[in-house]
């Protein structure tokens, strides 16, 4: 009897592992093995064409902390995250709350707001590049309203390039997070709002004291995905600067620099791996901090 049980159990196990094996194989090849290989490569000077690996110890890591260009990439990315991630979260929450109130043409607004998320980021980048180009609407409107003195090619201004990408990123990601908030808002009991209204709380007070605390777990999710997504920002910077990270390295993000070291002429997969690993550590720390901050006053404690 006992033996039979065991055989059944073994059979179950085999069946189970067979079912999950496609996922395991895919994850192993494209995630776990890749991570191990990346860690290995980060301690080597790698030439993939010749398939040579020369062990260099912590040299690649040392370079990360000594080279100006790498520092610039990290500082650009940090600035980008510091602006975009909180803005995304706050704007998404406000928009969701507004759309959740009983305003007219709610559905139409939802569709309009969601459209940018459906558009490919390449197309969005092209649109923004047109808006801020010398003959674009920003210059035309700005001149007419007086906030632009002289028509400028804003894409070529190191002070503006990253800001343009920030705007673009916020604009295109807010609707996605807004949708998540919207669905969560359905779960907030209407009676809370009614009670607050009876007590004389206005819309702002109701938003701050009911919506915001109730959305805390969602905010946590949105903020952390936002941080991870913005730290890894690549496509918009790549298209914007044609892969160079210019003007004057102002749009050079860490992900773009990793790409340059790995696949463009620099041909330095070792350093690219090291930078990628440092970036993951930074992301992990940032996410943990964000999580901790948000958890400090729990909703369901």
């Amino acid at each position: 009897m006992k033996k039979k049980m065991n055989r059944n159990k073994l059979y179950d196990h085999i069946q189970g592992y067979t079912f999950i094996s496609p996922a395991i194989v895919l994850l192993a090849v494209f995630v776990y093995i890749s991570i191990v290989v990346a860690i290995y490569m980060s301690f080597n000077e790698v030439n993939l064409f010749r398939w040579t690996f020369d062990f260099v110890g912590f040299n690649n890591y040392k370079r990360i902390f000594t080279e100006d260009r790498i520092f610039k990439a990290f500082s650009n990315t940090t600035k980008f995250v510091a602006v975009v991630a909180p803005m995304q979260t706050v704007l998404a929450l406000i928009l969701a709350a507004v759309l959740n109130s009983k305003i007219r043409a709610q559905k139409a607004f939802r569709i309009v707001y969601f459209l940018p998320t459906l558009t490919s980021s390449t197309a969005l980048t092209m649109i923004f590049m047109f808006i801020f180009s010398i003959s674009g609407p920003y210059n035309t409107i700005g001149k007419a309203l007086g906030f632009v003195q002289e028509a400028t090619n804003w894409l070529n201004e190191p002070k503006f390039a990253l800001k343009i990408i920030m705007c673009m990123n916020i604009w295109s990601t807010v609707p996605y997070y807004m949708t998540i908030y919207l669905s969560a808002l359905q779960d907030v009991p209407a009676s809370l709002y009614e009670a607050a209204e009876v007590d004389g709380a206005n819309a702002v007070l109701r938003f701050l004291n009911i919506t915001v605390p109730h959305m805390k777990p969602i905010t946590s999710f949105v903020f952390i995905t936002g941080i991870i997504g913005t730290f890894q920002m690549f496509d918009q910077a790549y298209i914007f600067s044609n892969g160079s990270g210019g003007p004057q390295n102002s749009t050079l993000t860490v992900a773009l620099m990793v790409y340059q070291y790995a696949f463009s002429l620099l041909n330095d997969m070792g350093l690219a791996s090291a930078v990628a690993i440092v970036l993951s550590i930074v992301i992990i720390i940032a996410s943990a901090l964000a999580n901790k901050l948000n958890k400090s006053e729990k909703l369901y404690s």
């Binding site: 180009s133 010398i134 003959s135 674009g136 090619n153 894409l155 070529n156």
Partner: peptide, 8 residues
């Protein structure tokens, strides 16, 4: 002289 980007 200008670049083509200056001309849009």
């Amino acid at each position: 002289i200008l670049t083509t980007a200056d001309l849009g």
